[in-house]
Design a protein around this nucleic acid. Sequence first.
RNA 1: UCCCCGAUAGCUCAAUGGUAGAGCGUUCGGCUGUUAACCGAAAUGUUGUAGGUUCGAGCCCUACUCGGGGAGCCA
Length: 442
Amino acid sequence: MGPFPRMHSSSHPVATVEHLSSHVGQTVTLRGWVYHKTSKGKLHFVQLRDGTGTCQCVLQRAQVGEELFEAVGRAGQESSLWLAGSVRQDARAPGGYEIDVSAGSVLQAVEGYPITPKEHGVDFLMDQRHLWLRSKRPWAVLRVRDAVITALRGFFDQRGFVCVDAPIFTPNACEGTSNLFEVPYFDSKAYLTQSGQLYAEAAAMALGKVYCFGPTFRAEKSKTRRHLTEFWMLEPEMAFATLDDVLDLAEAMLCHVVQEVLRRRKSELLALERDLSKLEAIVPPFPRLTYDEAAAILAKEQGSTFRYGDDLGAPDETLLSNRYDRPVMITRYPEQVKAFYMKRDPHNPGKVLCVDVLGPEGVGEIIGGSQREEDLDILLARLAEHKLPESYFQWYLDLRRFGSVPHAGFGLGLERTVAWICGLEHVRDASPFPRTIYRLTP
RNA sequence: UCCCCGAUAGCUCAAUGGUAGAGCGUUCGGCUGUUAACCGAAAUGUUGUAGGUUCGAGCCCUACUCGGGGAGCCA
């Protein structure tokens, strides 16, 4: 590699592509990689990618000298380099700004970068995920994902929630349903968490309003565009709260996140060819249906295989969400299709105080939440009905023995949310290094 | 676990049971305004694996491997 002084070997200040507009008329240095290059005789056009964006840099043989001109000529896609030159507004340049290069150096000349600017298949690109992240679409998605995470944390911080993270190694199934990943744990076994909720409930009794946010794992052999084996979930939990508080919180949270992404990542959304009007429509109030109301709608639909009493299937959810231009909240499902800890609805026998929030545009369930059962005896009975071993849940039952209060919360799937906001076909594209049933690498 | 689809050059894809092809990328040459440039030339193959049918299989049959989409389950 060539010399790489802390910034560069020219005396010009380092700029980033993101903030080039504030440097018009100045001479600056950009450091990055060759995203694309085309040459026409004594002229090179380099699309320099610096992580914050890409900028066209123009090299004229007569201006930059033989050595640099030839070096850039030999530098293929993703060669690393720095270039210094004056910043100029130019309508012919893709980003609107252009660098007239006067100096620079190629750090590493590369040839044979696997990802060419042509079409590639999903499997090939996922094998190259460590490199694919440099391409425009993954880059834009990761920037939106970052803004979603920042907006979520800001939202809960502003409302007085305390972040209390849950363990990833757990001794047993939180809900006793899904298949878990088993891992050796010294002389015994542990399982990777499928939800931090039970721990969040404990934290809520200690701190009032809390949320946990971390990776969760499902060993289900799901093979659809909505499933990963590892994904991030944000789970708020509130003491002294009801199902209605959950609905209001989820609605405000989703609106805040979408607003923040629109404010901070508009150019990334446009790069993803996202229809912004679909996101601008995400304002309160969200439609709220009970399970019974949803069932009545499905009963009138042709081709639906839904039977009253069943959980909603994926096609049913798509059918319902397509009726609205914003997320739809479906409450009060039959107790037999939901988890043991959900509180029964006192005004609605056989139903529980729960909610599924279905994202628009067929993205599926992005939030699942409920008011929790706070009564010790009822919870014991529910554990028995679900044939769950009481001994594993003693600490959880303590929460009902010592100052039990009504409380409620939900879980938000981060990748599904990002996929929805970005308009992605598949949740795997919302994760930097997705894990699916058949993919553990890179 | 079940259903459907697929696997041919580095990549994306063609090829009636009868000589293995194209575009892009790569390499070389040309060009002072390119946007996935263009023009000319060159190199590139264990057709996923193992059997079978046939005079002859990339193509038909069987099994397997890997992958894609969907169901169930769920965020």
